[in-house]
Amino acid sequence: MAINTKYELKLGAATREAFGKALVELGRTNPNIVALDADLSKSTMTVGFQKEFPERFFECGIAEANMAAIAAGLASAGKIPFASSFSAFMLNKGFEQLRVTAAFPRVNVKVVGTHSGISIGEDGPSQMSVEDLSLACSLAGFTVLSPADEVSMVALVKQAAAMFGPVFIRAGRIKCPLIYAADQTFTIGKAIELVSGTDVTLIATGLLVAESIKAAEALEAEGISAAVLDIHTIKPLDREAIAKAAQKTRALVVSEEHLVDSGLGVRVAQIVSETTPAAMEFVGVVDTYAESGAPDELLDKYGLRAVNVVAAAKRALARKKAGS
């Protein structure tokens, strides 16, 4: 059973903290691992790597585009660079460089965007990233990871380092619920079914995985059987798992802390329309930039909560019923 406790999710570390920890562990076992940061090492948590391996850490200053291409150069010359900043700056400022110097030649660079989504809180929308999954997925050949908790983050950072090719990893600022037990295994590209169910499938990534688990529990109390799928790999997307879920439940909700019209949801919808049609609903940020506020208040205001997933599931179920 993948879920730690059924009715209560314990708070774990932030995924950025898990990234920082995994990076140090990687540094100890592989001398080819190097890290780059753009004046945010205390926030992205690369500071631990910097302290332990100062000669393998490159502080690039506030110059993300330059950092992206330097990382690509390091990768082209045989290193395994992890370049990190806030996701908003890493991808928006580094996009063209990642496209030309990393994606075209498919170099072995690992790009980490922390402070993703709107749950960063008070700093507000200039520091938030609601389009990073879309941008990262638009880099041809990139693998795109979006772990939901510290256990999956540590495991997937290590797998990203072990595989050859460009990878983007999305991390968050706030502490998030522990989803997985320490011995859980992960495979890049393979979704994980956290809850099984027959009426509707709640597909989610990142923070919305925990919300979807809570939603499944709430639905169960109303006699609705909901499955939950954690999509920790946005690209390549687990076609088989999604087609299977569509076939089995014929009603899907996709939830993400991202613009709803360019993230995981539309990619899932593409697979569903190519395989087994199903009633679909989407939970995410709708065509706006958020604002300053406490993380919890923002998740409430922008509709990224279990209650929103529940409501979406009921809409999907109603359409499924009407269509059958």
């Binding site: 520091q127 604002e291 506020g293 205001k301």
Partner: peptide, 23 residues
């Protein structure tokens, strides 16, 4: 939440500003 005094200048909340900045 709801303040015109955002964490970084944002003309959506304060049209008297000349620019939204933060990046």
């Amino acid at each position: 939440l709801g303040s015109i005094y955002q964490g970084h200048p944002d003309v959506r909340f304060m049209p008297v500003l000349e620019a939204s900045t933060g990046s």
